[in-house]
Each structure stands twice: as structure tokens, then as C-alpha cells.
Design a protein around this nucleic acid. Sequence first.
DNA 1: ATGTGCTTCAAACGTATGTTTCAAACAGAC
DNA 2: GTCTGTTTGAAACATACGTTTGAAGCACAT
Lengths: 225, 225
Amino acid sequence: MAQSDTVDRILDAAEELFADRGFSETSLRMITSKAKVNLAAVNYHFGSKNALIHAVFARFLTPFSATLESAFDELEERCNGKPPTLNQTLWALTESAVRMPQRNEKGISIFMRLLGLAYTQSQGHLRKFLEQEYSEPFSRFMRLLKEATPQLSSVDRYWRIQFMLGATAFTMSSSDALRDILQNKLGVETTVQEIAARLVPFLAAGMQAEDAMLIPPAGSKVSVA
Amino acid sequence: MAQSDTVDRILDAAEELFADRGFSETSLRMITSKAKVNLAAVNYHFGSKNALIHAVFARFLTPFSATLESAFDELEERCNGKPPTLNQTLWALTESAVRMPQRNEKGISIFMRLLGLAYTQSQGHLRKFLEQEYSEPFSRFMRLLKEATPQLSSVDRYWRIQFMLGATAFTMSSSDALRDILQNKLGVETTVQEIAARLVPFLAAGMQAEDAMLIPPAGSKVSVA
DNA sequence: ATGTGCTTCAAACGTATGTTTCAAACAGAC
DNA sequence: GTCTGTTTGAAACATACGTTTGAAGCACAT
């Protein structure tokens, strides 16, 4: 699909294979043979496998972060002065993700899966790269979350953000498989948009949960009302 | 530490390295040199690297699933007849995890990280192994969740369980890194028990969220039919 | 002490990986 | 057409991996 330019063919193949199997488990030979290009092309065009990984992320993260920035701009303008609510902030994010121009029907799913891998697969170089390149929209999102949940302590907010990230990345990364299971079990069709629409209330509720922070003493029969 | 039996030394080293770096990124040579045993010992005692991975999981998952079963037994008995609440069910799970006898101070953290890896790192053989060996406590947990949330539709419950799994697996799989970040940023120390204690209220609140499925704010192009 | 079964050891095997090499093919400018 | 810089191609490189081998070591019953 798209143009038959070598660089793009490599990126397309790498993106899909990385999302399917992870980084270490995907060899350059798999990528180049799927892309139908010569093995040496990766090192010629990108320099190294790690640089290819960075390029795969940059290709969708750069336009996404631009879309996100303008979504935040619009949101803050619409709220003129007052901080956007948690729901508004989360919706701005998911809408930006869903509205991204997709290379194919699996686009959003691959997108999410890669983001999840970036976090869980402890590739030091990737972490460093992402932090350097995309710290701005990330911190802005964090700031909006902070302003939308002033009742939370910094520590509480930090962890709950991690929980949100996890629920999102995990669900979206395997959304294809999960959709299939649901289809077979209950005969229900589901779109990614619908998953997002179910996810956001879950996240918002969790984020705003009453803090029932009692670490139950050993032996206690816990009952959190 | 413990006995200097070769098998245990290998398991100890493998467990720690797997938790630190993932499965594919950990070589048998790293494991055997850390364990100070001969390279061939792994294949001699376990048969293959995959079998070693299974053994690492079995060593803590078998006693854990036993602990969990009895925690569920006790919980259901205590509720005599009435289904346990969502909070009770979630706490029974996390308590069982936290109370497991630890090999060292990093025990629970390694435990969680490995569980997270099992989900996120798409090792087919591991998935199959875990499903075959530990399906019973898993289905029981699912049944308890169903009884604790009768107000949810099957579809809603299905997705929200995925969200819970995701938040948990994701957070736990990178809990060390996340703890370090928190330590550096806010100077706060965190134990795994505290993370779990923060996670449970988040999950419970998300699970029981009002189904506000129509939230997309004004100006949104998302329409969830 | 001698033989037996299990365990360790150093070395090698075959395969797969990321990377490099250098000649051939190509495109566009003159 | 010829030259020039860029891209492709097949092959090799060095290294790392999981696994296998066969001899040596060991504990222990006879």
C-alpha cells in the first residue's frame, strides 16, 4: 500500500512486526523480507536497528503529538481560563488518537500496542528517545490532569495515571484479540471507538475514586465499604 | 543464599534476570554465570530455556494459587451464601499475593513483574503453559467478579475486567522503573504493598463506574451508537 | 577397591543475529 | 553518451545464541 518507496516499505513492515512480536523478537531479516527489500537497506537508510525503532515511533508519534497539541489548544480556549475537566481532557486525548489518519484498519491498534511495548519492553534507548522528543505534549497532558484532579495528592495522582496508562495500552494493544473473543462468546460486535467510549468512564471513575487507602493489617478480614 | 543446590541457584538467578530484562533479552549464559554454574546445567536439569521459564513460574505460581484458593474458600465461607463484594474479592487477591512467603526483599516485586511480563511479552508457550496449569483459580476469580457486579451487562463487565487486568499487569510489569521515577521526582519511597493498596480502590471505582456512555463533549465528532 | 548412577565441565555444534563490504544498477546533470 | 552521486544486491563478517557432546568428577552401595 501507499508508495513503494523503500524507506516506507521498511517502516510499514517493521511497525506491524514490532507490534505483533516485540522488538527483540523481530529480526531485520523478517522485516526486510516482509517489506521485499534487501537486508542491507535497513542499515543503509536508518543506520541501525535501534534507529529504525526510533523512526517507526517518530512516524506516528510526531503527527499525533501535533494533533494532540491542537486538541488541547482548542479545549483550553473553549474553557477560557477555567481548567478543563477530567472527562474533557481524557476525551481530547482519545479523540486525537481515534481521529489520526490511519494507514490501514489496524492502525489505531498497532499504534496502541507500540506505545504499550515502549513502556513495558525495557529498551533503554527507546525510553530515552521518547522522553527527549515528546516530553512537551506529555507534560502538558500531565498538567491538565493535575488541574483536573486538584483533590489528589501528587503521589496518588502519579500512580493513578500509571493505572490509566496501563488499562489503555493493554486493552488497545490486544483489542483485536479481545474483540474476537467477545464476538465469539457473546456475539457482540465492537469498534475501537466503542472500546474507547467504555474506557474513558472507567478511567475517570478510577481517577476520582475515594481514597480508601487502608492497608489491611495481617489477618484482618478486610471490608472496604 | 539458601542452599547451594544447582537447580535452585539457576532458578534464583533466572527469576531475577527475567524480571529485570525480560525473557528474550536474558541469555542462558547470563543466567549460568550469575548462578555460578556450568552453562550446560540448564539444559541438563530443565531440558530447555522454555522449560526453565515454566519452572520459574511454577515455583511461585503453584504455592500462590494454593494460597489464593484458600483465601477464596475462607472468603466465601465468611459470606455464607451471599456473594462476596467486589472489594472483598480484590483484596483477597492482593492479600494473597502480598502475603506469599518471599525468598528475599525483592520477592513480591519480582513476582509482580514476572506476572506482568507473562501477559505483555507474547511468549506463546508461556501463555499456553499458564492456561493449562492455573486455569482453575483464574475462572474462580472471574466467577466471583461476575457475582460481585450483577448490575453490569456481560459486555460491560467483560471490557472492564480487561481494563483491570491491563492496569494491573502494566503497572506491575514496570513497577520498579515507576518506583524509581517517583523516588527521583518526588523523593517518595514506595513499597509494592502500597502500590497494590492504591490500585485496588482505583480498580473497584472503575469497575463500578456509572455508565456515562454519552460523554463526548460538545464539538466532538465521536458518536457511539 | 570397584563399579554404578548422577552431576559437572570445557568444548564444540549449528543456527541466527546485526552489521559491513563492494560491485552492480540506477537516476539525473552536463 | 558520459560522468556522478545515490540506491540496491548478494555475499560475507563477526558475534551471540540455545543446545549437544563426551570425558571427567563425584558419592555411595557393594
